[in-house]
Design a protein around this nucleic acid. Structure first.
Length: 585
RNA sequence: CGGGUUGUAGCGCAGCUUGGUAGCGCACUUGGCUGGGGGUCAAGGGGUCGCGGGUUCAAAUCCCGCCAACCCGACCA
């Protein structure tokens, strides 16, 4: 295939669009791959669509190779199946809902678990039919509160979603591993750098789940790496501190600590009073900070939750949200404090917390607040703190909650080991062992070899296809522009005609014919009256990895071959060009 | 969800304070020169000034509402 720059529906921009912050967004717009059409919705221009199609083709090949079969559902679906699984309600405002002319409710599907489940129920009824895995490549809709970063978080996006159906847990694990392996192959072929991390299953329900995260500063997920593995920060478990025998610990005493509403002011004050300093100076980690939040439950009711964390830590709201899901978290405001007059803002202490206390506020503490640990904490009186307050001796929390911020050096149970790294990543794939949630809700059963009805167990597996395009752009670009891995570049070779002599144009066309015959597609920059500087800059911006310049040495039968990844240019005889292109990796 | 900033030609921006002919650079059209790193001269085309309402003889400009984009925040006791 040959494309002529002068005829392509393509316009590159010299300046970065003002509303694009992340590199992939800005470059895809600037290089003429995408145009914004709506909040969180993008139009694919010819070059962009070529890339999207290549990515889709790789994914389809790997799914088919793994033995999964492709189907295709409507994106516009009736309410009933989603009502049966309660997701019509559970999905909340992120679900696009609409009505037909008769007033019947419809939705634009955010994922298709229900439809796949019903499809298998429709056609299969025997254990002999299983296992089976089906997939589709489909446009999905989610009414994101804040679409951002171009393709990275849109309201309309393309997703590959697969579903496995098995008769038992062993089968589910096998299907899950097959998908895991297929995803690894897929992302390797797409040249996406990724890590597999343990994850929370979130809104999909189910148990075991892992995410494929592409490390990138623009990523919205934070994950931790330990010697024993990696996990999303929402899914990690901090190792509990060891219990301490408190028989010999000093008794708790209350002291006036005027003007110490913050942890730092409290620590400074404590260390400035000789009678308060112990064997060694106090640090923020010796204080116990009690944060109160309001939980809003699914039925609309609310409750207060107090969380005790070491004073050098913050409550990580994302970890907290994940822990209390599906309830949502709101910070305690003045009106909340008004409802709990026993709480003194800035000096909240364990004495007034817990279900046994008068205010009946549930009180959960960080795993580091183990029995026998001793703390400085609020005395529920303005300007007053308790010293040497010992957990399990002087106060009894209602339980443990692991929602403090995570740091390098922390010890974890999941993933096992000490945290060596905290990093950000973009979620490009997610695999779940769903279990029987959907099969039960929609009554998907088959007969086993004993003639008994058994409920099918399912897995659900997604790849963000349009997001993958952004990730590739994000991970491979340089300061000059995009750089597409050869497997998914819109075309194989970008031929720049550097000069105005007629012979260069005919020569370039002949060279393109030769490359086509060898199986390479070519974009020829045949624009007249455009300076070579502009052509070179556009070629670099467009990011086709192989650039061939037909210019002043052409009369000697020589062209220049440039490799965007190696950032090198070499002179090659015309007769050697195909071989030289074949040698590029 | 809260706060801030922004919205004027395809892109990047000025004009708004003090109401009165809508401007600049790039891109685009025509012609010339130039021709290996966003070159140059000349002449042009292109705008419901985000949307809706209000004030006024008159609104890009003042007022109200809405929408959108970007950034920050959501506990730090």
């Amino acid at each position: 295939m040959q494309y002529r720059f002068s005829e392509m529906f393509l316009r590159t921009l010299r300046d970065n669009p003002a509303d694009a912050e992340v590199a992939s967004h800005s470059l895809l717009i600037r290089a003429g791959y995408l145009r914004r059409a709506a909040a969180g919705g993008y139009t694919w221009l010819p070059l962009g669509l070529m890339v999207l199609n290549k990515v889709t083709a790789v994914i389809r090949e790997e799914m088919n190779r793994a033995g999964f079969q492709e189907v295709h559902f409507p994106a516009l679906l009736p309410r009933e199946p989603y009502e049966a699984t309660n997701r019509w309600t559970e999905y909340g405002p992120a679900l696009f809902r609409l009505q037909d002319r008769r007033g019947a409710d419809y939705l634009l599907a955010p994922t298709h678990e229900e439809m796949f489940t019903l499809l298998v129920k429709d056609l299969y009824s025997s254990y002999k039919d299983l296992p089976v895995s089906l997939y589709q490549i489909q446009t999905k809709y989610r009414d994101e509160a804040r679409p951002r970063a171009g393709l990275l978080r849109g309201r309309e996006f393309v997703m590959k979603d697969s579903y496995s159906f098995d008769v038992d847990d062993a089968g589910l694990i096998t299907s899950y591993q097959k998908h895991r392996a297929a995803y690894q192959r897929t992302f390797e072929r797409l040249n996406i750098d990724y890590v597999i991390v343990s994850a929370q299953s979130g809104a999909m329900g189910g148990s075991a789940s892992e995410e494929f995260l592409a490390p990138a500063a623009a990523g919205e997920d934070t994950y931790v790496v330990t010697s024993g593995g990696a996990a999303n920060v929402e899914a990690i478990q901090i190792a509990p501190a060891a219990s301490i025998d408190f028989a010999s610990l000093p008794a708790a005493t209350v002291h006036d600590t005027p003007d110490t509403p913050t942890i730092q002011s409290l620590v400074e004050f404590s260390n400035s009073k000789p009678e308060l300093v112990g064997a060694k100076p106090w640090t923020a980690a010796d204080t116990l900070k009690n944060v109160v939040v309001r939980l809003t439950h699914q039925d609309g009711s609310t409750s207060a939750l107090a969380i005790g964390v070491p004073g050098d830590r913050e409550v990580d709201m994302r970890r907290l949200e994940a822990q209390v899901y599906p309830a949502t978290v709101t910070p305690f405001g003045d009106e909340d404090f008004a409802k709990y007059p026993t709480l003194v803002k800035g000096y909240i202490g364990p004495g007034q917390l817990g279900k046994h206390a008068s205010a009946k506020i549930e009180y959960l503490v960080d795993p580091r607040v183990a029995p026998g640990t001793s703390w400085i904490t609020g005395a529920n009186k303005s300007g007053s703190h308790v010293f040497h307050l010992v957990a399990d001796r002087d106060f009894k929390p209602d339980g443990v909650i692991d929602v403090a911020d995570v740091r390098v050096g922390d010890d974890c149970v999941v993933p096992a080991g000490t945290v060596t790294q905290l990093a950000r990543g973009i979620e490009v794939g997610h695999i779940f062992q769903l279990g029987k949630k959907y099969a039960e809700a929609l009554d998907l059963k088959v007969l086993n070899e004993n003639g008994e009805q058994i409920t099918v167990t399912m897995g659900s597996y997604g790849i963000g296809v349009t997001r993958a395009v952004a990730v590739i752009a994000e991970q491979h670009h340089d300061d000059k522009g995009l750089r597409w891995p050869r497997a998914i570049s819109p075309v194989d070779v970008h031929l720049v005609i550097a000069g105005k002599d007629e012979s260069l144009f005919t020569g370039a066309t002949e060279l393109a014919n030769t490359l086509n015959a060898a199986g390479y597609s070519v974009l020829i920059d045949d624009r007249v009256g455009v300076s070579v500087g502009v052509k070179f800059n556009d070629a670099e911006l467009l990011g086709i990895p192989t650039i061939i310049v037909v210019g002043k040495k052409f009369v000697d039968g020589v062209v220049e071959l440039r490799d965007r990844f190696a950032d090198q240019a070499v002179d090659v005889a015309l007769t050697e060009v195909v071989g030289a292109v074949q040698n590029l990796k």
